[in-house]
Simulated assay, not measured.
Amino acid sequence: MAQDQDPWAAPGKNNPGQENQPTDKPKHNDEQSPPDLEEAFSNLLKKLGGNKSRSNNNGSSNGAPIHYGKFLPIAALVGVIVWGASGFYTIKEAERGVVTRFGQLHSIVQPGLNWKPTFVDQVIPVNVEQVRELKTQGSMLTQDENMVKVEMTVQYRVSDPAKYKFSVTNADDSLGQATDSALRYVIGHMTMDNILTKERSVVRDSTWKALNEIIKPYDMGLNIIDVNFQSARPPEDVKDAFDDAIKAQEDEQRYIREAEAYAREREPIARGNAQRIIEAASAYKEQVVLDAQGEIERFQRLLPEFKTNPTVLKDRLYIESMERIMAKTPKVMMDGGNSMTVLPIDQLLRNKGAQTNTAPASAPQSAVNSQPVLTHPTQSTPPSSVERQGRFN
């Protein structure tokens, strides 16, 4: 029968009389046309899927195959977007990015948001502001063939990220080896006593200089900031003796600082006293000069009187001089003609004070404790003219 259908026939061939049913094979025109990408992608999926794809196609409602080729541009676009978004990265403020393209140095990027082609470029962040620290220690031989254990710390910073990463294999390890070499060279040219006592600063400065000379040819992109000489210890057998020597050295420095502090404290006081003495001497000088000028002025005024009556003026000057001299002495001289009596007024005053404290207030005063009265010679009893002439001549 023509109406009978073969259940095992392929889709679209159940009714052989229907010629207009769609088929899987495209119609070939006489002219050559470009290949259909969707059809090629669908055929590829069919080959990969095998029987599963055919079973899914048979189980579809309309019996037509699913065309996956239309999703290919979308998938490609999504892949491009994901690839582009994965290339964004951020470099911190204290870092610089070393960009390598296929393993070779390409450029240095600055802090901020940047972009790189994924799977093509690789970015290595390097901190250029961090102060790094490297410690080295070991037992070393000195110039006088003694063993000493020293410790030293080197502080450095990365100055050139590209040279830091590509000049040497490992810049930090190379710097450690250079530091150990420089320290051994310096220790080997110094005696143990100097290393442990008075030339510790020399070890630091010499090691810093030698280290810079060693790493200069390698151009590792490192900048040595400081070198600290931590400690130096002698062998245990002589450690106590060297500790005493170091302590004595420290005491010496402490005494020197104390003496300098004392000198700084006393120097302003001494300068002040010297200035005060200079000012007092200047004032005394001015006073003496002014007194001399006053005396000159006074004698100039007395000169006319002296020319008029020289004897009277001589007596007057003599009396004034004796009053001025006797007012400053505790002894009184009484001129009794050919003899002169000296009364010890100071002893009489002391005896009088002692007896006043011991004796009752009503006790009579002795003639010895009575205070003598100083009488100056007058014109009625003038001194001999020979003595006066001797004084002024």
Rank of each mutant, 00 (worst) to 15 (best):
K25Q: 15
M192A: 05
P26K: 11
G69R: 05
E31Y: 10
G390M: 03
N228G: 10
A94M: 12
I325Y: 14
E297K: 10
I91P: 00
Y318N: 03
V288P: 01
A75I: 04
T341K: 02
M322Y: 09
G353I: 13
E252N: 03
R276S: 12
V131M: 05
Q5E: 10
Y156S: 06
W83I: 15
I195T: 05
V126S: 10
K165S: 01
M140L: 14
V98W: 05
R101D: 13
N338A: 05
I91M: 04
K149N: 12
S339T: 13
H67S: 12
V368N: 01
N351M: 13
Q389G: 09
Y156N: 07
L72H: 06
E145G: 00
D36T: 11
Q355M: 14
M192Y: 03
F166Q: 02
D30G: 08
A292D: 01
D291L: 13
G390T: 07
G176N: 15
S206I: 01
P330V: 03
P16V: 12
P65G: 06
N15W: 08
S380R: 05
G188V: 02
M220T: 00
T378I: 13
G221P: 13
A40R: 08
L374G: 13
P372S: 06
S380E: 11
P372T: 06
Q3G: 14
D6G: 10
M192H: 04
R204C: 04
P73Q: 06
I81C: 13
L222D: 07
S384A: 08
Q130L: 07
R324L: 11
F392W: 09
G97T: 13
N338P: 03
L37H: 03
W83N: 14
P34W: 07
Q104D: 14
Q355H: 03
L45W: 08
E265L: 00
L77T: 15
E295L: 15
I215Q: 06
K198F: 05
L348P: 08
T378H: 10
M340Y: 10
V158E: 08
I277H: 06
Q275Y: 13
P125R: 07
A263E: 06
G84T: 10
I187C: 07
P117K: 15
T153M: 11
T153L: 13
S139E: 14
F166H: 06
L222V: 15
